[in-house]
Design a protein around this nucleic acid. Structure first.
Length: 590
RNA sequence: GGGGACGUAGCUCAAUUGGUUAGAGUACCGGACUGUCGAUCCGGUGGUUGCGGGUUCGAGCCCCGUCGUCCUCGCCA
């Protein structure tokens, strides 16, 4: 061992080490200097240790005076107790300090463009932090997050290994398949003009592994989708991909609930109650306007279509007559919290709702002896009472009502519900709510393309009892599909798959894919299903979103070591970037 | 592709709504200080107000264009 190499980490020393001579390696976190005495907090990922330079030796004091933030240092010295009353209770190493006897600068550092130490909430802008990501990653919160993410993966591997799951890798270079997200394409050098696609998920490969008899599979797999980003979405992300043979939905639920409990226990020390609540897709859409409802707070949506249709309001009557719905939220006690101008056309609240396609929003402020807001003239006193009863409204409440096509009403009210809850702080952001959404429809009508599309994906098995009317009434077919939802985020989704080649062919043709097309695109799957495919199903966990939940952040870039920015660029390396002409000509691209 | 917010010192922000020399905190540099720990105190350096054009006696502020960042709608089976 070289004489500068560490004997201990910066988070390790306690009063039991007093008297020992140790060597620490780390970064200068903070520097507090005097004439003849310099305090340095030396940092590594394990913690901070205070080092004191108070030697008379000119070499050592000269070195101490030349130090700067983020210098990389090796210090050898004796562990000693701090002076009485000078302990630092904020540090686990706060009872001791290392008196430097020998020190060596392993590397200097110019003034960092961003501050590494964290206090207050004064982080630099994200773009500059991403540009110097290796500096930002030195921050304790980011280190803690990545350590947590490691624990998450370790827990997953341990838990599944104990249950005889096999971790198997699947290809990155695959074949582009239609439907779904836009593919990232990779040109082939050996076959000019032909392209690989990077996987959107290992979906088909894991089904083929089931056919091959690997009846419990998982993979912590990178997935790539060339779509626009969001706060919780970037082009490459990680899934825990899992598949099992000879199972039904309840078997998957059991594994995932057990795994979730293990994750919360290991990562946060929280005991999650099981079994998880289950809610039908229909109920979620009706009561929460979303297929990923946040149940940390109430504020359920109330349907008043019948009441509205019987009112004097022509716009309500017309919308209901045309098959639309009228629904609303009771924002308890919020009547005084929003001005009328926020609630009128062009107001903030209305504009927010209208982003989701609604063309307006009615509001009712409930007062002790009357209601106000503009709707009151359309409702008889009796109808007003019914309205208040429907909403369980009391004086001081604010009712927000949207009338439109059902999908628009759900979207607008669902988004409004979440928006208002965080605005009014209706829930504790440190709590967790987890549930299954089940009973999804298999197919949805794509109005633009005028065809049926799979809500989940085309390999999802319909319920056995719905197979008979799949062609005659596709809208009524329900899928053996399930989503795992936490705090309003979809953190997992899966299904029991189709294992019959006939059913799979019927679904493809339902989706408007002629047999030749299906064969060209998915022939390998149809073939595989013929050769003795077992019943199987599985799930994909959004690992980044799980890490977000555990870390208490809403930004996916906080849980990825080297993320892309909102425009899909890696601002540190500059990717994507131009390449040499030679590289392109090798690939047959001019 | 659409909408919104933003861009001022290395970093975080301010500038009385168009008015004199663009300020503060922090960082950095120098000085003081023998127990600090977000050290403190004193002093100092630091600016093409993203970039280009325009309006004006005068622009950080208004207008047009452009680049960039974040959020969002569409999109993400």
């Amino acid at each position: 061992m070289a004489d500068w190499q560490r004997t201990h980490t910066c988070g390790e020393l306690r009063d039991t080490h007093i008297g020992e001579t140790v060597t620490l390696n780390g970064w200068v976190n903070t520097y507090r200097g005097y004439n003849n005495q310099v305090f340095v907090d030396l940092r590594d990922r394990y913690g901070l240790t205070q080092v004191v330079f108070e030697s008379d030796a000119p070499e050592l004091s000269q070195l101490a005076n030349s130090l700067g933030r983020e210098y990389v240092l090796s210090v050898t010295g004796k562990v000693r107790a701090r002076l009485p009353g000078k302990d630092n209770p904020k540090l686990v190493t706060g009872k001791i300090e290392v008196q430097a006897e020998k020190a060596r600068v392993l590397n200097a550092c110019p003034t960092p463009p961003i501050e590494i130490t964290e206090f207050g909430n004064e982080l630099a802008n994200e773009d500059i932090r991403l540009q110097y990501r290796y500096l930002d990653l030195r921050r304790k919160t980011l280190q803690d997050t990545l350590i947590m993410r490691h624990k998450l993966c370790k827990t997953i591997r341990d838990y599944l290994d104990q249950r005889e799951f096999l971790e198997i890798e699947t290809p990155l270079l695959g074949k582009s398949t239609p439907e779904g997200a836009r593919d990232y394409l990779v040109p082939s050098r050996l076959y000019h003009g032909e392209w690989y696609a990077l996987p959107q998920s290992p979906q088909l490969y894991k089904q083929l592994l089931m056919v091959a008899g690997y009846d419990k599979y998982f993979q912590i797999a990178r997935c790539l989708r060339d779509e626009d980003t969001r706060a919780d979405r970037q082009p490459e992300f990680t899934q825990l991909d899992l598949e099992m043979s000879f199972v039904e939905m309840d078997d998957i639920f059991k594994v995932i609930e057990g795994l979730s409990v293990a994750i919360f226990e290991k990562c946060l020390g929280i005991a999650l109650p099981t079994p998880f609540q289950r809610m039908s897709y229909a109920e979620a859409m009706l009561k929460y306007g979303s297929d990923k409802p946040d149940l940390r707070f109430g504020m359920e949506i109330v349907d008043i279509s019948a009441l509205a249709a019987n009112s004097e309001a022509k716009f309500f009557q017309e919308i209901v007559a045309a098959g639309g719905v009228v629904r609303g939220l009771n924002v308890k006690g919020a009547a005084a919290k929003f001005s009328n101008s926020e609630l009128k056309p062009k107001g903030k609240i209305v504009e927010f709702a209208n982003r989701y396609g609604s063309k307006g929003l009615s509001y009712v402020k409930v007062e002790a002896d009357k209601i106000t807001g503009g709707l009151e003239k359309f409702f008889t006193p009796e109808a007003q009472k019914e309205l208040l009863t429907a909403f369980n409204a009391e004086p001081g409440d604010l009712l927000l009502i949207v009338a439109d096509k059902e999908a628009v009403v759900c979207d607008a009210l669902g988004a409004l519900r979440g928006h208002l809850a965080s605005l009014l702080k209706l829930f504790d952001p440190k709590t967790f709510n987890i549930l299954w959404i089940v009973d999804f429809p298999s197919f949805m009508r794509d109005e633009e393309e005028n065809r049926w599309v799979a809500l989940h994906h085309p390999f999802t098995s319909p319920r056995d009892e719905d197979l008979a009317h799949m062609e005659s009434d596709p809208g009524k077919v329900q899928a053996k599909a399930y989503d795992l939802v936490m705090n309003g985020y979809e953190v997992g989704g899966g299904s029991i798959r189709i294992h019959s080649p006939e059913v799979q062919s019927r679904v493809f043709s339902m989706l408007g894919m002629p047999e030749e097309d299906a064969k060209a695109r998915f022939g390998f799957l149809l073939d595989a299903l013929k050769f003795g495919a077992p019943p199987h199903g599985g799930i994909a966990f959004g690992l980044d979103r799980w890490a977000m939940m555990l870390a208490g952040t809403t930004n996916i870039r906080d849980v990825i070591a080297f993320p892309k920015n909102a425009k899909a660029r890696d601002v540190m390396t500059g990717a994507p970037a131009l390449v040499d002409k030679k590289q392109l000509s090798d690939l047959g691209i001019k």
